[in-house]
């Protein structure tokens, strides 16, 4: 009975909220500011030609820096919640499946490199590339070709944190020159490419870690 009353109240409140929000949205006039023009005007100084990538890594690059910190942090939380170590022995899949995974993995790496490179002028970039890399690692694990990850050794830790460390180091180096992440226009393209390349590897490892650290045998 109490649960039913709670459901009723929550659903009723949600409906009222939706009705109020829809009503208010329908009467909304044009926004006071339009950032599309300034984003385009300064695009040549950002080092990239795709406006979303320019916002993501230059105009609002600080958000992205903190966002990578959040990802690394989630991985730390997973490691900290831990549980007894001992990775599950991989179950070998059908040889046919293994063979096609072997074939797919290098192609996925190729796609990741393309996405990274295309990010400068098309939708794409480090996160998308990293996600494809992580998918390749998960695929190899699922068909039984690689083991789940245990507590990370130094090399893996360097790989996981390296992209963020590089991003932070560039940000700090630019800070000593005047502004945090204040890319000089002449170098912006190269620096952003360097950061994105580093992030691709680390993001691939972190996202793969979300899966592979969890596939440990928790007992």
């Amino acid at each position: 009975m109490k649960a039913l009353a709670k459901t009723f109240v929550v659903v009723w409140l949600a409906l009222v909220f939706v009705a109020a929000a829809i009503g208010a949205m329908l009467e909304l006039g044009p926004a006071a500011l339009d950032l599309r023009a300034p984003v385009t005007d300064h695009l040549t100084d950002t080092g990239v030609s795709h406006p979303v990538t320019a916002v993501l890594l230059n105009y609002r690059g600080y958000d992205t820096l903190l966002e990578i910190a959040v990802l690394l942090l989630a991985l730390l939380g997973i490691l900290a919640a831990g549980g007894a170590a001992g990775s599950a022995a991989p179950k070998a899949a059908h040889p046919m499946l293994q063979a096609s995974a072997r074939l797919a993995a290098p192609l996925m790496i190729l796609v990741a490199v393309y996405l990274l490179w295309a990010g400068a002028f098309l939708p794409g970039g480090a996160f998308q590339a990293g996600a494809v890399l992580a998918a390749a690692a998960v695929l190899l694990h699922l068909v039984g070709l690689t083991r789940g990850w245990d507590s990370p050794r130094l090399r893996l830790r360097l790989g996981l944190a390296g992209g963020f460390a590089l991003f932070l180091a560039v940000a700090a180096a630019l800070l000593t020159q005047g502004a945090l992440l204040g890319f000089p226009p002449a170098w912006a393209g190269e620096l952003i490419m360097l950061i994105e390349a580093g992030l691709t590897v680390s993001l691939g490892l972190i996202l793969a870690g979300f899966f592979l650290f969890l596939s440990r045998d928790l007992r």
């Binding site: 339009d34 950032l35 599309r36 984003v39 406006p51 979303v52 320019a54 916002v55 993501l56 105009y59 609002r60 958000d63 992205t64 966002e67 990578i68 959040v70 990802l71 942090l73 989630a74 991985l75 939380g77 997973i78 919640a81 831990g82 549980g83 996160f127 996202l207 979300f210 650290f213 969890l214 928790l218």
Partner: peptide
């Protein structure tokens, strides 16, 4: 399209991925 909210959403998605991963890990444990 306005690229600024697009970039914000990309940031938001990554944060949501991180939170989901942490939540799943805790639930599994």
């Amino acid at each position: 399209p306005d690229p600024v909210p697009h970039a914000m959403v990309l940031t938001g998605i990554v944060v949501a991925v991180a939170a989901t991963a942490l939540a799943l890990a805790l639930v599994r444990r």
